[in-house]
Nucleic acid binder design. Structure first.
Length: 469
RNA sequence: GGCGACGUAGCCAAGUGGUAAGGCAGGGGCCUGCAAAGCCCUCAUUCGCCGGUUCGAAUCCGGCCGUCGCCUCCA
């Protein structure tokens, strides 16, 4: 696939044309969840942005190696495990599994690697040792800290100046002893009742930022292409990753930093205390369609705050219906014998608009607008008498290409054969009634089928049916 | 206090110098036995407010108002 892919780089605050270090191969690290609970739809918005990113990279012809970490040791996972009376691994396993289920429900493509922090203790220790060799660490009360004053590039991602005043800022809540308030912990000394590893750094556990540096470099190399997360990760998390990685290797860590804006709910920040905190499971329990949720979460470009509302979810649901209905018409309308009422230029324009929109920093709103425009064009052509074989194949190919990124099209219905026979019998009976102008009988049959989730449509080429979504 | 994002119709949202995409909701119509699906028309003389630059600004500049985020383990 030709075309230019431009991405907004937080590091330079500019739109840049993507060019990977290794031609044709995009190496991508995406900050994953802390597995102490179910993820919420705000988290999922970010993960779906990353899904759109990886699929767009593929659409533009790149081979993709994506790593998504699973943070399975931190204050919250430790606390959760203690409360549940489980060991850390057993506790986090539950949420790792739930996380994968949620991703699958929303059709997120699997990454190539899902490393867990607790499987990379060795690499983390080795990284700290390299930092120590470079004079960037110190030990205090058994914990190892990163000395920010030793890394001149600190702050280049976030714009946070090391000497920035902290008036009004959150007071440091870290309970460990530091030389300087700006320093952060690499390795935490073991505390009573907490999981700990016996290592060359002493008995303890890793600090949060360390895992991402260690795992990304282990799996993608010292320098790789893209690193993503949500905006709240810019500082301190990603800033600290840069300090850890570049402080150890003296090589550029990441070329493109991409950050997703947050999801808010009905104009307010999502918070448990406000009762507007939703997990995917909450929405499914209310009967919402996963495809509509996917549509909604990817419909707003990733750098815009996404205001989640139930009106918006309804609109997304309508959009999925529309896509689904047009596909259904394409499947059930006979191929026209004429030239076909859908000009090839229309399809070419769609392909171009769609690609250009995604190439412009993943502008999914524009990509979806192009799709809606094509759907209308297709429907007009179907109204006008159907598509030629060539036009039919052409439009299906274009839709398939778009769906390689969007993944919003319902799987073809898989009706049981016996079921299908029964439906056809009912349709025949109803059409007999209609021919005899016995409309109350005909309507009764239609209502009966409807109760079974079968919708009838009387079209110019006969009665067709589909399943209610 | 520091840093950053944003304010476009009832709602979501595209558009960053050339005269307002797309979707939802609403209104009217075509088609249909009635529906469903689809299509057509309609729905912002105007882009938070006030100035400025320009032949021309939603788009650039300045000020003001408002919303939101980050400021050391929150996607």
């Amino acid at each position: 696939m030709a075309g230019e892919l431009r991405l907004y780089n937080t590091l330079t605050r500019r739109l840049e044309t993507f060019a990977p270090i290794e031609p044709g191969h995009a190496r991508l690290y995406t900050c994953g969840p802390t597995v102490y609970d179910h993820v919420h739809i705000g988290n999922l918005r970010t993960f779906l942005f990353e899904d759109v990113l990886r699929r767009t990279l593929k659409l533009f012809g790149y081979r993709v190696t994506q790593v998504m970490n699973l943070t399975d040791v931190d204050d919250k996972t430790i606390l959760g495990a203690q409360r549940a009376g489980l060991d850390l691994r057993t506790y986090t396993d539950r949420y790792v599994e739930a996380f994968f289920e949620d991703l699958a429900t929303l059709r997120a493509e699997a990454a190539e690697h899902y490393p867990r922090a607790t499987d990379y203790i060795e690499q983390m220790v080795a990284l700290v040792q390299r930092l120590s060799d470079n004079g960037l660490t110190y030990t205090s009360a058994g914990s190892v800290y990163y000395r920010i004053s030793g890394f001149p590039g600190y702050g280049k991602l976030s714009g946070v100046r090391p000497e920035a005043n902290l008036a009004g800022a959150r007071v440091d809540s870290d309970e460990y002893e530091k030389e300087d308030a700006r320093d952060f912990v690499l390795w935490k000394a073991a505390r009573e009742g907490e999981p700990a590893w016996e290592t060359a750094l002493g008995r303890g556990r890793p600090g949060w930022h360390l895992e991402c540096s260690a795992m990304s470099m282990s799996l993608l190399g010292d320098s790789f292409d893209i690193h993503t997360g949500a905006v709240d990760n810019i500082f301190p998390h990603h800033e600290n990753e840069i300090a850890q990685s570049e402080g150890a290797t003296n090589a550029p860590f990441v070329r493109y930093w991409l950050h997703a804006e947050h999801l808010i709910v009905e104009g307010e920040k999502m918070a448990k205390s406000k009762g507007n905190f939703f997990t995917l499971r909450d929405l499914l329990a209310r009967g919402h369609d996963p495809l509509a949720i996917r549509y909604l979460l990817i419909s707003v470009p990733y750098r815009q705050k996404l205001n989640f509302t139930f009106d918006g979810l309804h609109a997304a649901d309508q959009a999925i219906d529309r896509i689904s209905n047009t596909l259904h018409r394409l499947r059930t309308t006979p191929i026209a014998t004429g030239p076909g009422a859908l000009p090839a230029e229309e399809i070419a324009r769609f392909r171009n608009d769609f690609l250009e929109a995604l190439g412009d920093d993943l502008n999914t709103a524009r990509a979806l607008a192009a799709l809606h425009t094509l759907l209308r064009t297709v429907n007009i052509a179907l109204d006008a008498g159907g598509l030629s074989g060539a036009a039919h194949a052409n439009v299906l190919a274009a839709l398939g290409e778009a769906d390689a990124v969007l993944d919003l099209m319902p799987a073809a219905a898989d009706p049981g054969p016996a079921d299908e026979e029964h439906i056809q019998r009912m349709i025949d009976e109803r059409n007999g009634a209609r021919a005899a102008r016995d409309f109350s009988r005909a309507d009764t049959i239609r209502d009966q089928l409807r109760e079974q989730g079968i919708l009838l449509e009387d079209t110019a080429h006969g009665t067709v049916w589909r399943r209610e979504r």
